[in-house]
Computed example of a mutant assay.
Amino acid sequence: MKLLLKILILSLLINSCNGQNKTKIIEKSKEGIKKHNNDENIDFLDKKYLTGYLLNIDGSSMSEHPIVNYLDCENEGYFTMHFIPKSDTLRVFWTDKYNKIYKYEYDDLDTENKHISGLLKNNYNLYNIFLYKINKEYIVRDRLCSEESVNIKDNSIANIYLLDQTNNRWNLIKQLKENVLPPYHDNNYFLKLFPKLFSFDKVLKLSKNRNVAYSYDFDLDQDGIKDKIILYTNDEEKGEFERIHFGLPMEVKKGLPNNTFQDWYKNNNIIFKNNFNCAAEGFNRIVIKENYFTIEDYICSDYISISTYTTFKVFEDKILLHKYGEAYFDKADHDKKIPSKTWTQKDFNEVNFEDVTENFLIKLRQTKPRK
């Protein structure tokens, strides 16, 4: 009986201790959440912070997506609000069509703010709105505190928040070490970090049980019937972003009068594979004009971001390489001007679509373009 009593008392003590430990863990967890939630209670959409809508400028396009910058070296630190379009169609609008529709001087920020605020009004639901924030302790400054003069320390901690538009609340969704200032992240940076947040307009199922990443309908051979360009997902890749941006098999199908398509050209090696050089890499889009189409990709080399443009000409039953171009952007020195390069048929003669591969383009870009 005494032994049984001792066992019962010991059991109660153990359970009591376990309960205390669990309470401490929960309290620590709550303290940790509180610590990270300081910013989550701030309304970053308050007029105080909405200092004016601008465009994110990267090395490949005049406009990338709308942003808002805010800098306070003494208190809040430095953050940028990034309005990242959820759909491919809207991304194409900002990177291609916006500048053709709205023409104004590059430094006319009042006009830029007017146009962008009008386009965003009542349309926040079309965007994933991220807040990329560097706290004040990581800011490097001299006497001044201006966006032109400040920098950040190496391996600064960046807090990335996502606006919950239902509850109008900012949720901390990622913390990571960064060396890049808040304004200088393009669409692909967020697409790669959070692929599940985006709906890809043209991801669908077609025949042969193959996943289609992108599909374009256009009259390529100018015969009055629309043809089709299809890029299939690369199912060898593990990540969702990688599957629709690297090593995509490509097919061009010829449109027939009876609303069907026949196989025309195939190329499994034309879209660059994943080389893990930087976040902003991979397939971007295809631009079609008359009987020409251009494949646009992003690649990287050290601190240089490279936008590539591979243009083909379609005539009769042939698809031939027309030209290949590259535009450069120095991530370490945003003001540095690097001349673009273009290779034409003087450099490669007649090359069929199916013969233009990643290896072919790598060898071509190692040569000096002829003038």
Rank of each mutant, 00 (worst) to 15 (best):
310 T>F: 01
64 E>D: 15
355 D>I: 01
350 E>N: 15
115 H>K: 10
61 S>H: 14
18 N>H: 08
315 F>G: 02
296 E>T: 10
149 S>W: 00
335 D>P: 00
368 K>I: 12
230 I>E: 02
42 I>T: 12
176 L>D: 14
163 L>A: 08
133 K>D: 09
7 I>V: 14
240 E>V: 08
331 K>I: 01
69 N>D: 14
68 V>F: 04
225 I>Q: 05
359 N>C: 00
208 K>E: 15
153 K>M: 11
8 L>M: 08
298 Y>P: 00
176 L>T: 13
37 N>E: 13
44 F>P: 01
106 Y>I: 10
223 D>N: 15
197 L>D: 09
270 I>N: 03
3 L>D: 15
1 M>F: 06
130 F>H: 02
137 E>V: 11
220 L>F: 12
338 I>N: 02
102 Y>W: 09
40 E>C: 10
70 Y>T: 02
371 K>R: 11
178 E>Y: 03
101 I>H: 00
235 D>A: 01
346 K>A: 09
266 K>G: 10
281 E>K: 01
44 F>T: 01
72 D>Y: 05
3 L>H: 05
199 S>V: 08
14 I>D: 11
122 N>F: 07
350 E>V: 09
278 C>A: 13
38 N>L: 12
200 F>M: 06
320 L>V: 13
220 L>R: 02
64 E>M: 09
187 N>C: 12
43 D>V: 00
36 H>L: 14
313 K>N: 12
96 D>N: 12
183 P>D: 08
257 P>M: 09
135 N>F: 01
41 N>P: 00
272 F>N: 08
68 V>N: 09
69 N>L: 13
222 Q>F: 07
304 I>G: 01
165 Q>C: 05
284 N>A: 05
207 S>K: 13
88 D>C: 01
185 H>A: 06
167 N>A: 12
143 R>K: 14
330 D>T: 03
190 F>E: 05
164 D>Q: 10
80 T>P: 05
246 F>I: 04
128 N>S: 07
355 D>C: 03
94 W>V: 07
338 I>M: 01
244 I>Q: 10
193 L>K: 11
51 T>A: 10
1 M>Y: 07
365 R>K: 14
118 G>I: 04
141 R>T: 09
10 L>A: 14
59 G>Y: 02
109 L>P: 00
243 R>C: 05
315 F>K: 15
358 E>P: 04
102 Y>M: 04
188 N>P: 00
14 I>N: 05
290 E>N: 14
348 F>L: 06
349 N>Y: 10
204 L>V: 08
223 D>K: 08
300 C>M: 03
232 Y>F: 15
238 K>Y: 10
238 K>R: 04
5 L>T: 11
287 V>E: 15
79 F>G: 09
151 N>V: 00
150 V>Q: 06
122 N>R: 07
231 L>Y: 04
132 Y>E: 07
340 S>C: 02
